[in-house]
Amino acid sequence: MTYLKRSPWIIHYDASSCNGCDIEVLACLTPMYDIERFGIVNTGNPKHADVFVVTGSINEQNKAVIKNIYDQIPNPKVVVAVGICATSGGVFRECYNVCGGIDKIIPVDVYVPGCAARPESIIDGIVKSLGILEEKRLKMKNPDTGQSSTVGRK
């Protein structure tokens, strides 16, 4: 539970979602769900962020944008794919402009299903991702001892 002592910041990017999951991610920040209780702050700046929350599937145009934002986030970082579109492409999988889930471009640590993902699932997903973030941090600090299952995760 050490990770709850820290205050991870999230950055949210709408890849090509229908807005449904987006507004649910935002709803998590508002009084009813209030993930700020866990010290989580939504930031607009990738360089401040620890958790990258992506909604919607990858398409040809935002491939580069997502890669760019991902690269700008300092290590350690985790990626949370929120919603069916982000995890597999969902109903839009067959569209010509959609490449599929986020894991085609960047490694994803937590998959949150749901169409649209409910705020409760998003909270679950983000809290899960904090554990992984902590593991990654330990791993980074002392690469020998901090064995973790996240190494080499796709």
């Binding site: 995890t87 597999s88 889930g101 894991d103 994803v108 640590d109 937590v110 998959y111 949150v112 299903p113 749901g114 409910r118 409760e120 699932s121 679950d124 997903g125 899960k128 992984i132 995760r153 796709k154």
Partner: peptide, 11 residues
């Protein structure tokens, strides 16, 4: 009950 968050692509 909604389906839980997963740690790998294994739905």
């Amino acid at each position: 009950q909604y389906s839980p968050a997963l740690l790998s692509h294994s739905g």
